[in-house]
Design a protein around this nucleic acid. Structure first.
Lengths: 341, 341
DNA sequence: CTGAAAGCGCTTACAG
DNA sequence: CTGAAAGCGCTTACAG
């Protein structure tokens, strides 16, 4: 168990050849460079005997590639991003990439700093869910010439790769579902409505109401402040349950759905007897909630692996495709008890 | 918006000085090296004007430090590790480190590969929750001379840094709590009992039963197979609810607790009327479960930040402390409805 | 007190 | 077809 790191030069010296030859052989270019089989065999033999571990940093430095992906999501402790992150890690590993995780907390400033840090760390590319109001930061990536794929969100003003679901259709469908159940007073509780992703959900909801001939309209969309706290949710729910006499609520994410349920439990509002609920996202625990939650499940596994595949193909192509890949996947509606009989 | 990367040499040439001087100034060693204030000012000025971004890889290569921590947990999509990972990321960022996330899926083989990959990527150290049976892999880290801190778990056979909670005491307390509620038939559902962490929970549970004069003992400990599926949990629960006529179950983790509740919902077993439950861990959703879950909350924030602080202090000290830091934190018992009146 | 030179460990273009 | 040499962009020990 020696302490000294063995380098390619050590192998070369021991064999009386140049370290260039060692490098060729170890990188599988022996054939290509017409190095004799016997020599190749001996290089591998000595490398194994010395337990040679190439210094990756030297390689990165030389090649400019780090085999690293920068991932920026809102918050890794949010189960939605946890599942997504897991898939991204899995697919990246499959392709020989490691991933640096960053949580932006939906702050454009933090996001910008993380982006700079990752660019300076010479990641090969990014997968990210940019926070609201971060168009400038995203555009600035262009300067670095690094490829990136947006996930869960995108900006209409930026022509980029992205992987999202059809949010409009999903919200429309969920709202129609509640209407068919007989609910007429349906509220929509959301946050980050500036993001297309979220706004498409709002649009889908409103359109479904309109198409049904109801005119509750805008009044029933509750846009929570940017950094929403449980108190904000509470205030909204108190109003909805009280004067608004709402019969059902559609939550625009599981994070807000969870907060909503917490508040309802505290206030003694029964689900679905007093108020029925449907929620975007489908974390595992929705099955065991106070009333199992009717959910709009996103194909997180497919979203994550698709994003990574697009990214690595661009990294390996050496430059960005002229054509951005814009992937829109379908979600799955899962009925449970929270939406009533 | 030029494409060419600016290097420290560009700044040096423009000022007619050596790039060494530029390096000194930019690294805040101007004073130390007695470089005139005027020169320092000009260096910063030109660096700003050229929008100089030092090539971190070159720096890493030169210094051998990457300002990167390797984090290996079981599964980032598990809320327990999600919260923990979030705290680790936060504290690491505070200290100027980025973190590469790896999920081992509790596989020693995968874990070993991730370790090798991270060592070759020259991370500065590790924070990890090693899977059962990975003693050899952990010991192998010694060869790399890299510092590491275990989290949530440790191996009695390895003298290392670690941060855990007092699992024995927590399980003991939870069991006594159930006994005081009047339950006499209490089962303990667990997995990975080979890990001290988990085994300490088992011991605490058994000791509490013994101290109370009850002799249900071993028979009520259900050790699920290593890679437990919902079917395994179902089988156990069916037995417990049926012939065993158990009145309460203590779950050894939130992952298994969630599965347990799913099964109970499917089987129509009411909580706590038919069977009361208490669970280790306290994910957010425990508050809104079918019956809000009485939980043993771990201080995840403190665990994460403590682990990172120990690690970075060792990284910066240049070598491992002779004394391993073994931190045992307290957990918090939170009573909710799932444990009955 | 200041600055030129060496060198980290690879890969690859190029000369023989 | 093979191998010696250059060079990636920093930092720091060392000579002046």
């Amino acid at each position: 168990m020696t302490k000294k790191k063995v380098t390619s030069d050590d192998i070369a010296k021991q064999l009386g050849v140049s370290k260039a030859l060692v490098s060729f052989v170890l990188n599988g270019k022996g054939k290509e460079k017409r190095i004799s089989d016997e020599m190749c065999r001996r290089v591998f033999e000595v490398a194994g005997k010395l337990n040679y571990q190439p210094n990756q940093i030297a390689r990165w430095f030389r090649t400019g590639k780090t085999q690293t992906i920068g991932l920026i999501i809102a918050d890794i402790s949010n189960p939605f991003f946890g599942k997504l992150g897991r898939e991204i890690e899995r697919e990246a590993a499959l392709q020989g990439y490691k991933v640096i995780f960053c949580s932006s907390d939906e702050s454009p400033v933090k996001f910008g700093k993380q982006l700079d840090m990752l660019i300076n760390s010479r990641v090969d590319g990014f997968v990210m869910a940019p926070p609201p109001g971060s168009e400038e930061q995203v555009k600035a990536i262009e300067m670095s010439k690094l490829p990136y794929v947006l996930i869960d969100r995108f900006f209409p003003s930026i022509d980029s790769n992205y992987v999202v679901i059809d949010n409009y259709a999903a919200a429309y469908k969920a709202t129609v579902f509640l209407l068919k159940k007989g609910y007429t007073k349906i509220a929509f509780l959301t946050v980050n409505d500036e993001l297309v992703t979220m706004h498409d959900r709002t649009r889908g909801y409103l359109q479904a109401l309109q198409d049904s001939g109801l005119t509750l309209g805008e009044k029933s969309v509750y846009r929570l402040p940017f950094s929403h706290s449980k108190d904000d949710v509470k205030e909204a729910i108190v109003q909805l349950a009280g004067e608004k006499e709402v019969g059902a609520i559609l939550f625009s994410s599981s994070k807000i759905g969870l907060m909503g349920m917490e508040v309802m439990v505290e206030l003694g509002i029964r689900i679905p007897e007093d108020i029925a609920i449907v929620s975007f996202d489908d974390p595992d625990f929705y099955k065991v909630c106070i009333s199992p939650v009717t959910a709009i499940a996103q194909p997180l596994s497919e979203m994550g692996s698709t994003a990574v595949k697009i990214l690595t193909s661009e990294i390996e192509a050496g430059e960005q495709d002229l054509l951005s890949r814009k992937i829109v996947l379908e979600s799955k509606f899962i009925e449970r008890k929270s939406s009533g009989e």
